[in-house]
């Protein structure tokens, strides 16, 4: 499985990762090698096998619909990169 530079750039975009143009060939080769490696899975016919999403076959536990968390906005925003009037600041999105 060989990826192209275009595919690697698309994956990086989907993952919202900036990668340097100069590093692209390295990612192309490393990611292709890893995909080749995992392709060993194709040796086994898994047609009728049920996929296993979770090690213990349990159903998701639900809790009572009650408020359990206090409002800690100030504490949480004290570690944010940029905050004003209780809001997280990001570059302008809407013109």
């Amino acid at each position: 499985m060989s990826l192209t530079a275009v595919e690697v750039k698309k994956i990086a975009h989907l993952a919202r990762l900036a990668i340097n143009e100069a590093d692209t060939p390295k990612y192309v080769s490393e990611l292709s090698t890893i995909l080749d490696f995992v392709a060993q899975m194709d040796k086994v016919d898994t047609g009728s096998i049920l996929p296993m999403a979770h090690p213990l076959d349990v159903t998701q536990r639900l809790r009572a619909d009650e408020v359990t968390e206090p409002n800690q906005r100030e504490l949480f925003q004290s570690i944010a990169p940029s905050v004003e009037s209780g809001l997280y600041l990001v570059p302008q999105v809407i013109e």
């Binding site: 690697v8 994956i11 990086a12 993952a15 919202r16 990762l17 900036a18 990611l31 990001v90 570059p91």
Partner: peptide, 26 residues
């Protein structure tokens, strides 16, 4: 905003983490 996401993550994560995020995304 997109530049903020991409560069914060691109500069904040190391090489192995980026490799794995990309493999997983793919």
């Amino acid at each position: 905003l997109e530049d903020l996401y991409k560069r914060s993550r691109g500069e904040g994560f190391g090489a192995e983490v980026k490799r794995r995020i990309m493999i997983g995304t793919y």
